[in-house]
Nucleic acid binder design. Structure first.
Lengths: 329, 329
DNA sequence: TTGTAAGCGTTATCAC
DNA sequence: GTGATAACGCTTACAA
């Protein structure tokens, strides 16, 4: 044995008694005489040789690695996305570099820079930094945030989902619907949930109120204040609330019950996302379900597409409604 | 501009009017004349230069990348582990390559091979393949599975947690405890949960039954059969069950309630893991809590330790008990 | 078909 | 302290 470190193609070539180039060809499925191929494979097995994908990447400028940038991995929506992305990626022999940002714009920029150094073949990002700087030569697909015509954005049909929620609520007998959201100040595709909801109510001639809170304000205080303004004689003025996420729906249900309001008898609730209980797989609430695996698959598809000449600017995937106990059905 | 691809050190050197080596030194914090450093930094900024970590890795044999191998990322235990690992890793400027295996031994081996090609600096693996082949030269830390004296294994104090569960159950008035688990056939550290439980019962002179099921058998059928054997006049023979995981606890609670058995009035349940509800952060059940972030941090610590001469074989991190509604407290 | 040799972008070892 | 120059392990013309 020449050296103690990992065997290289040179070692394999020596062992097999062939030239370096021949070994390379074997590992790249290029035409090689059958007897040579066998000898090389045998030698490689004997030495435990594995190609060094860094050296290969240096030559070919392709690393078969994609970076996924997410705020965190503990939120079930994000982890489902990561799971889906991993599966789509590994089906194509790609590896996945995961970067987590806590939704912090600077951390997001740091991650981008870091993975760029790593020479990934592309980035899928769910970010909150409105002016992210990313190498325009590096394929990038954005989730839920539209950056402009050059960066494909994939999201659920948020507007349609909002409409769907409104129609369902009205169909289930609501007369005074409310839209509620707590979210980032940075504009994003998910803002359209409220727009769709309001639009559908308007079209049905139903007056619809909205309460849009920002993350920094918190939920509890402002919403309590809002509630007390809209309670009349122990009854809430609204009989249906469309909450922008399932997580929000759960919180609201709790706050409502503290006030003695029953869900769904007094107030019906519809959420958005379609998060499922860990153990049982049940929904947490009635909700508009995002097609998370398809979302992930679509991102990978767009990112790895050979022909990057005319990619779609924005893809909205269809959502579905499902009852989960917070509506009267 | 020479070429359209990403700028290299050569380009920076040219732009700054210094030698290639000088640029390298600047980016490696090696001593360089202040005026040179400034010129180089300026040129790099202008060109948008970023070091190519593949080329660097090729030279240095260090990639500042660690692979994390997990069955999936949707299970809250695994996603918490991934989150913790990411945080510990990124605090040390390391990137994280995530590999998911569905607990499939072949997929696990494939992942190992793939990340070895990628020349990661180390692997943290939570795997079920009892005879995984991994390059002995590559630092490897195992979670929950002991491979032998050369591979550090980190886990929670499963035995102690089992004891703790028994003591708690007895303290809360249980006279007829049962241990239940459904798991892999492959031996692992978590098997010690039952051992600890039985040991503590024995020491207290309490008879303790155990039901150990394998994944392939499923839970519902065998457990239903078991229950019907141990029901006497509508009452269950056992008044306390220690379930090997929180997920199992939830399932059991459901099955018991179908039989008209109340939790915790008729039967008290203690789980293991300390999984929390997504939105509220509440525990799903009374449980033995694993210190997941510490688990992750410990893995990273062990993996990246400079001195790898005498690493601990097995680290058991302390667990804690917390009530979560399935015990009478 | 097979072998040879020139790089890919870095780091590291030298003389200067 | 600085600047040529030789690797690192691989791919890929191109020559044999």
């Amino acid at each position: 044995m020449k050296h103690n470190s990992a065997p290289t193609m040179k070692d394999v070539a020596l062992e097999a008694g062939v030239a370096l180039g021949t070994v390379s060809k074997v590992f790249n499925d290029l035409p090689v005489g059958e007897s040579y191929r066998l000898r090389v494979e045998e030698a490689a097995r004997k030495l435990g040789y594995q190609v060094n994908s860094y050296a290969r990447g240096l030559k070919t400028n392709r690393t078969f690695t994609v970076a996924l940038i997410l705020p965190n991995i503990t939120d079930p929506f994000f982890s489902a996305l990561a799971q889906g992305a991993y599966e789509s990626l590994s089906a194509r022999q790609y590896r996945m570099l995961l970067s987590l940002t806590s939704s912090n714009p600077e951390a997001e920029q740091r991650c981008i820079r870091m993975v760029q150094q790593n020479k990934v073949d592309g980035i899928i990002g769910l970010t909150y930094n409105p002016n992210l700087e990313v190498d325009p030569a590096l394929p990038y697909v954005s989730i839920d945030r539209y950056f402009g015509p050059n960066v494909p954005c994939v999201s659920s049909d948020n507007f349609g989902g909002g409409q769907m929620a409104a129609e369902k609520l009205l169909e289930l007998g609501c007369r005074h619907p409310l839209f509620l959201r707590v979210g980032s100040r940075v504009p994003g595709e998910s803002d359209k949930r409220g727009d769709g909801f309001e639009s559908a109510c308007r079209r049905r001639g139903v007056k619809c109120d909205s309460l849009r809170l920002n993350d920094e304000d918190g939920l509890v205080e402002p919403f309590r204040a809002f509630l007390s303004q809209h309670m009349k004689g122990g009854r809430l003025e609204y009989d249906g609330i469309f909450c922008a996420t399932d997580a929000l729906t759960i919180h609201i249900r709790g706050m409502l019950s503290e006030l003695g309001l029953r869900v769904p008898e007094d107030v019906q609730l519809i959420g958005f996302d379609g998060i499922r209980r860990f153990t049982t797989g049940d929904l947490y609430c009635s909700t508009i379900i995002q097609p998370i695996p398809r979302l992930a698959e679509t991102c990978v598809d767009l990112l790895l597409r050979e022909d990057r000449s005319n990619l779609p600017r924005l893809i909205c995937l269809p959502v579905t409604y499902a009852s989960g106990g917070t509506t009267r059905e």
